[in-house]
Every structure is written in C-alpha cells, then in structure tokens.
Simulated scan of single mutants.
Amino acid sequence: MNKGAFVRQVVKDYALVAPIPPGNYSFAGNSVGCKEIVCHLWKESSAPRTLLDIGFGIGDLARIVRARPEHAQWHLDGIDGFHVACCNTELFNKKHYRHIWHGLAQEIPAEQLASYDAICLFDVIEHLDVVASKALLRHLLASLGPNSRLVLSTPLFFWPQDHKNPDDLEEHLIGIPAHSLVALAPLMYFIHSDFLVGTFVFSRKSLDLIDGFVPTSDKAFDMNAGRVHLESLGLKADDTLYFVNPA
C-alpha cells in the first residue's frame, strides 16, 4: 500500500512490523452481518483469493475464513481506524491476517483496492456521515476489479450508538434504508431477522447506480420504521441468503 499520511502498517507478511507496547487494551468491534456470505462469493472456493477486511475489529471474519480448510489459499488483509484494534497481539500472532494497517478506508489507494478479489465492509459505513458514506461507497465500487466483489453490511435503520471513548469511531451517524442498497442491484443479500442488519454483495456494475444510495441522518428512522420500509419493498428479514442478480 502506498501509505497515506495517516496509514501505518502494523503487520506485514503475517508478522508484526514492530513490537506492540504492553498495555491495558480492551478489544471490541464486531458485527452481526453475515460474514459467512464470503464463502459463497465464488463457485471454486479453494482457488487463491485475496480479501480486504475494512474495520476488522476483533478479527471475526478471518476466524470464519480460517476455520474452513478449503480456504487455505485465501489471504486476508485488514485495516482499522481504531488504534486499539491495531494493538491486538493475540490476534496477530494467530497469523490470520497477511497485512494489517492502522488507518481509514478512505485513505486506501484505488490501485491497492483493485488488487483484491473481495473488499469487505462489515458494519462500518454507518459510522460515516451522509456525504462521506456515499463518497466511500463510490470510491470502493469504482476501484473494484472487473470480477471483484464488495461485501457490505449495515443496519437497515438508524441504530443509535455513541462513543465509548473520544477516539473509538463508534458513533453511528446515519441509517441506510433498504432501498438504498437494493437500488444498487446486489448479487446476493442476507437480512438478520432479529437485528435488521443487511449484508449485501455488489459488483462494479453497481457504480452506475450509485445515485440510488440515499442514507439518512434522521434518528426517527428507527428499527420499526426500517421493518415497515423493508416490507414495502417485498423483502423479508428471515436469515436467508438470497441470490438475486447473477454476475
């Protein structure tokens, strides 16, 4: 990666670049998004693949991938803007991630993004405001290779969440109505029945439909409103993986 001003490499080729100072670290950051969806992205799951895990948190995506022997040739890289997430020596010693960077997704060069078979964004985009979220989504879609995939999960409503610490990036700034993601012609999707978190898979073709992505900063768009809206589209939150638009 061509390092931006705020990007620092922590792990390179499965090894720590430098020792992480001892500290009283508390690791968090997970998603109820359907991470297992990555196992359905390609018919030949044992072929070599590279994935970028944006906002890797506690590394749950890597745990799921590494649990499957057929993914032995997959390489995962991760980037997280939360400093503490990049101090997880126990996670990094498992060698689940090839490269780890401390930084923001917006700082990743397009040529770096284009090298991945899949870019994963599990419960990250709702931490950005309306303008920044659309800009990031446009950047990621525009940077996809012709056969690459963008995997994105997010609450399909405004899920209030505030900071725990001043620098933790935990606050939710937007809600994303289901139509904003359906309008991008996903290849497949999964919607969690209890939490109304949707996981969607897109190709580069979705870039042409980016104007349909219309998140909201209206906190009144709560879970109930999100469910009503989802039903108006004829969609169900039923924990089922749907394949809707062949690549």
Rank of each mutant, 00 (worst) to 15 (best):
M188Y: 06
R227A: 10
I100G: 05
C120Q: 10
P109N: 10
F221A: 03
W159I: 03
R138K: 14
D77S: 11
L233W: 12
K94H: 11
H229L: 12
L241F: 05
G55F: 12
G234M: 13
L16N: 11
N30Q: 12
V197T: 07
V214Y: 09
K95M: 06
G212S: 02
G78I: 02
R98Y: 12
R98F: 15
F56L: 03
E111V: 10
H102C: 06
I58Y: 09
G198Y: 07
K236S: 14
L104R: 15
D77N: 11
A28M: 00
P69N: 02
F122T: 01
I125F: 05
L169E: 02
V201G: 09
V7H: 08
P166E: 15
A142G: 10
C39K: 06
F27T: 00
F195M: 14
D80S: 00
F221N: 00
D162Q: 14
L52T: 09
E111T: 11
W42F: 15
T216L: 03
G226N: 06
I58D: 13
E44P: 00
H83E: 15
L209H: 09
Y97P: 11
M223N: 01
R8T: 14
R63I: 13
H96E: 13
L76E: 00
G23V: 03
Y97K: 11
D129W: 02
D167V: 07
Y14M: 07
M1W: 02
N2V: 08
R8Q: 15
L61Y: 01
A247Q: 07
H127P: 10
D162C: 09
L41N: 04
L150A: 00
D194V: 01
I37G: 04
S45V: 09
K43H: 15
H71E: 14
L235T: 13
S133T: 04
P177C: 06
N93Y: 01
H127W: 09
F243Y: 14
L76K: 05
A118H: 04
K236L: 14
G212I: 04
Q73P: 06
S217M: 12
K164Y: 14
F157L: 04
D168G: 07
L207T: 12
G59R: 04
S153I: 00
L156M: 12
V182K: 12
L156I: 13
G59F: 02
P160H: 10
T199L: 00
A72V: 11
G145D: 14
H139Y: 09
G175N: 13
P215Q: 02
I125P: 05
T199C: 07
I37M: 02
H99I: 08
V244Q: 03
K35A: 06
P48K: 08
N147I: 12
K134I: 03
A178G: 05
L113M: 11
P48F: 05
L209Y: 12
G234D: 13
A62K: 00
K205L: 14
N93L: 06
P160E: 11
V17M: 11
E170P: 02
L41V: 02
V124L: 04
I20E: 13
K95P: 03
D239Y: 08
L51H: 03
V84I: 15
G55S: 08
L137F: 07
L187F: 03
I119G: 08
V124T: 01
L184V: 07
V151W: 01
E231I: 11
D60C: 10
A132G: 09
V65L: 03
P69A: 04
